[in-house]
Computed example of a mutant assay.
Amino acid sequence: MTRERGILRWPVLRQLRGEDPRSDAARSARTDALRPRVEQADKVARSVCPYCAVGCGQLVYAKEGRVTQIEGDPDSPISRGRLCPKGSASKQLVNHPDRQTTVLYRRPHGTEWERLDLDTAMDMIADRVVRTRRETWQQEEDGKVVRRTLGIASLGGATLDNEENYLMKKLYTALGAIQVENQARI
Rank of each mutant, 00 (worst) to 15 (best):
R115Y: 09
R115A: 11
L116N: 02
L116Q: 13
L116W: 14
L116C: 07
D117C: 04
D117G: 09
D117L: 01
L118D: 12
L118N: 13
D119Y: 13
T120F: 07
T120N: 08
A121M: 08
A121H: 10
A121Y: 07
M122I: 02
M122L: 15
M122P: 01
D123H: 12
D123F: 00
D123K: 04
M124S: 05
M124R: 13
M124K: 07
I125E: 03
A126T: 02
D127L: 00
D127Q: 07
R128M: 03
R128Q: 11
T132P: 06
T132Q: 11
T132F: 03
R133D: 08
R134V: 06
E135D: 15
T136A: 10
T136M: 13
W137L: 11
Q139H: 14
E140H: 12
E141G: 03
E141I: 05
E141D: 06
G143Y: 05
K144A: 11
K144Q: 07
V145L: 12
V145W: 04
V146A: 07
V146L: 01
V146N: 08
R147L: 02
L150T: 10
G151M: 04
A153L: 08
A153H: 02
S154R: 13
S154C: 13
L155A: 08
L155S: 09
L155C: 05
G156D: 12
G156V: 03
G156H: 02
G156I: 04
G157S: 15
A158R: 13
A158M: 06
A158G: 07
A158K: 05
A158V: 04
T159N: 13
T159C: 06
L160P: 04
L160G: 09
L160Q: 14
D161V: 15
D161P: 08
D161G: 11
D161L: 02
N162M: 12
N162E: 12
N162R: 15
E163Q: 08
N165H: 10
